Amino acid sequence: MTKIKVCGLTRMEDIQAVNEAMPDYCGFVINVEKSRRNCSPLLVKEMVCRLDKRILPVGVFVNAPLRLPTLLLREGTIAIAQLHGQEDEAYARELQKASHCPVIKAFSVKTSQDVEKALKSPADYILLDQGAGGTGKTFDWSLVPEIKRPFFLAGGLGTENLEEAIARLKPWAVDLSSSLETDGRKDPEKIKAAVAMVRKMEKDN
Rank of each mutant, 00 (worst) to 15 (best):
L66D: 01
P150S: 01
F107R: 01
Q82M: 04
Q96C: 05
H100W: 05
S179W: 05
R149I: 09
H100C: 12
A98F: 08
H100Q: 15
C101Q: 13
G184Q: 07
E181G: 11
P188A: 13
S112N: 03
F139M: 08
A165L: 04
A154K: 01
E163S: 12
S112Y: 02
A92K: 00
A173H: 03
S112L: 06
R74W: 02
D88E: 09
E94Y: 06
V144P: 05
S121G: 02
E146R: 05
I104N: 03
S178I: 04
L71T: 13
I147E: 13
E163M: 11
L180H: 04
D183Y: 12
G134P: 06
I166S: 14
E75Y: 07
E160D: 15
Y91R: 00
Q86D: 15
I80D: 00
D88F: 02
G85R: 00
L180C: 12
E89D: 15
Q113H: 14
T159N: 13
Q82H: 04
R168Y: 09
W172P: 06
G155Q: 11
A167T: 09
D140Q: 12
A118Q: 08
V115C: 15
G134W: 02
L153H: 05
A132K: 09
G133N: 07
V109H: 02
F139I: 11
L83P: 00
K192D: 14
R168L: 13
K148Q: 14
K192E: 15
L119A: 09
E189D: 15
C101G: 09
D114R: 03
T159R: 07
G76M: 08
L71A: 15
A154H: 02
I80M: 00
Y125K: 01
D88L: 06
L83H: 02
K186H: 05
L169K: 02
V115N: 11
A98D: 12
L83Y: 01
V174I: 14
Q86A: 15
G136K: 00
L83K: 01
